[in-house]
Every structure is written in C-alpha cells, then in structure tokens.
C-alpha cells in the first residue's frame, strides 16, 4: 500500500494546494509581494459623499494616484471627512486643487477625482483640500427640478 509514489503524490497535492493559495493571493486578489507604495495623507471635507467607500480610488486625469482610507463624520462642521492615501511620487498637487466625487460610468463606483489647480505651492501630508465638490445626487437633482426651486 505505502510506497514512494504515495509520498510523491501527497507532496504534489500539498504543493498544488499551496500554489492555488498563491495564485488566489497574487492573481485574483492582486496582492503584491513588494512592500506597499509609500503614501501620504490628504483630507477633503464633502457635504455629501454619496456612495463613496473606503478603498475607493483617487484619480488625477484618470490615472489612479491613491485610495480612500477612511470616511468619517466631522463633529463640528457636520461634513464627511474623507482621508486619502496618495502615492508619494505624486507630490505636485497644488493647494488650490479641487477634490470632486465622480462616478465611473452611469452606475459605476464612486471615486475621488482631483482637478489640479495652478498654484505653485503643493499640498503636503495632512493638508486639507481647500475646495471640494460633492457627489451628484440624482434624487436631489430630480426633486429640485420637479419642484423647480432652482
């Protein structure tokens, strides 16, 4: 019953299983073995984050430059405080840039789009976006239109 072949088969089976786990980690969930990119934090306060979620992407000109790390409610201003981790390579976001919540496609995920300004000074770790633009709320839009309180 017991033979070298059995041992080999079991070894192959265990390797196959571990290989499957590696594939699940690297190919399917996109986990990368290299240490994560260095990031710095920028904060933006929105009146309405709509459907934005943590891990949502932050993009500049359509290129992903970071992700949303946390969304909390600010006690004093009663606005949504969105913290974003931005890649350190992208260190040229000027202080008058605007953070806009946009939707990819008509029904797609919400993400933060940064429209860059013209100021020479740049935002640094822990800085706030001076101006923001909230998510487009379709229902509010329709109700405003219907009651014509423009």
């Amino acid at each position: 019953m017991y033979s070298r072949k059995v041992e080999l088969a079991v070894g192959g089976f265990v390797l196959l299983g571990i290989g499957a786990l590696f594939l699940l980690a690297l190919e399917v969930s996109g986990l990368s073995l290299s240490p994560g990119k260095q990031t710095y934090t920028l904060i933006a306060e929105f009146d309405d984050v709509g459907g934005l979620r943590p891990r949502g992407k932050v993009s500049l000109a359509g290129v992903t430059i970071g992700q949303v790390t946390s969304i909390t409610l600010d006690r004093e201003s009663l606005k949504a405080r969105v913290e974003m981790a931005i890649d350190t390579e992208v260190d040229y976001i000027s202080t008058d840039s605007i953070a806009v919540i946009s939707t990819s496609g008509l029904l797609g995920d919400k993400y933060v789009d940064v429209s860059i300004g013209g100021d020479l000074e740049t935002l640094e770790n822990g800085d706030y976006f001076y101006s923001t633009q909230s998510a487009l709320n379709l229902e509010k839009l329709i109700s405003t239109f219907a009651t014509s309180q423009m």
């Binding site: 299983g17 499957a20 786990l21 699940l24 399917v28």
Partner: peptide, 13 residues
C-alpha cells in the same frame, strides 16, 4: 479540504 477548496476556486476561475 482547505487545499481542495483552494484548488477548486483556482480551477473555477
């Protein structure tokens, strides 16, 4: 069973 389940997922994908 865990090893088989991981193989199952990979083959399914």
């Amino acid at each position: 069973l865990p090893l088989l389940a991981m193989i199952f997922s990979i083959v399914g994908i």
